[in-house]
Design a protein around this nucleic acid. Sequence first.
DNA 1: CAACCGACCTGTTCGC
DNA 2: TGCGAACAGGTCGGTT
Length: 267
Amino acid sequence: MPELPEVETVARYVSEKLSGKTVVGAEVNWERSIGTPDSSVFLREIVGCKVLRAWRRGKFIVIDLSNGRNMLVHLRMSGDLQVKPANAPARIHDRVLLRFARGQTLHFYDPRKFGRIYLVDNYAQVTRKLGIEPLSDDFTVERLGALFSKRKTRVKNFLLDQRFVAGLGNIYAVESLWAAEIHPLTQVARIPRRKIIALHSAIRKILSNAVASAGTDLGDGVWKYGGYRVKAYGRAGKPCPRCKATLRRIVIAQRGSDYCPCCQRRR
DNA sequence: CAACCGACCTGTTCGC
DNA sequence: TGCGAACAGGTCGGTT
């Protein structure tokens, strides 16, 4: 579920709530929520750690600890982090709880159990394979063009592949392609320069607007904080906001891809 | 190299 | 109303 804007929102929230606080206790209710190390080792090693700050890399929340190590959280499809008073009851889908000094508890809520927490010496052990940060200065039209060159991948698959650009997921990939007027099945090497420019600009604009809006609330309760409004995602059968043609949905990489058959022509 | 498929999980929505 | 199927913001490993 959460993509870059939602993960950024959670990372800022955690940083604000927990910076300077020390873990005094921990509970794991679903072992596989801990990616590494084993949950028993995690429980032993996380207690006593002090949070310096939290930030984001791709879709990972990275927590810097005062002992130099890092705790990372990936929310996958349904994860969320909430800081509550120590006396707040755990919910049925709270998989991991971290209790902090001064009566605060971090709840890792994750109905589908896909999310993962990692405790490592260096965050790069986990994030090593991630591609470029789309909101960084390094993400230029030239870099995007270079990644496109000679590749046969379809652009929708490309945008979902975290090894190229880190942070886009299905919603924002669909939105970016709609904004840039590119058909999702287009092979990246065949995208003309003016469209590369349009896509680069769309990705940055859409992601930064969504971050500023605290993400996207699709109305199904999975993410209920943000105010970003989608233009194409999930709107198959409804009119294109640009040309009024009926939006369509096809499946690419087993993910629904909404697009406008009129403005997003193939080739 | 690139696409596809099943896994991993639970909850919600859809169609009959 | 009820019930099973389909589908959901992500990623990985094994096949084609």
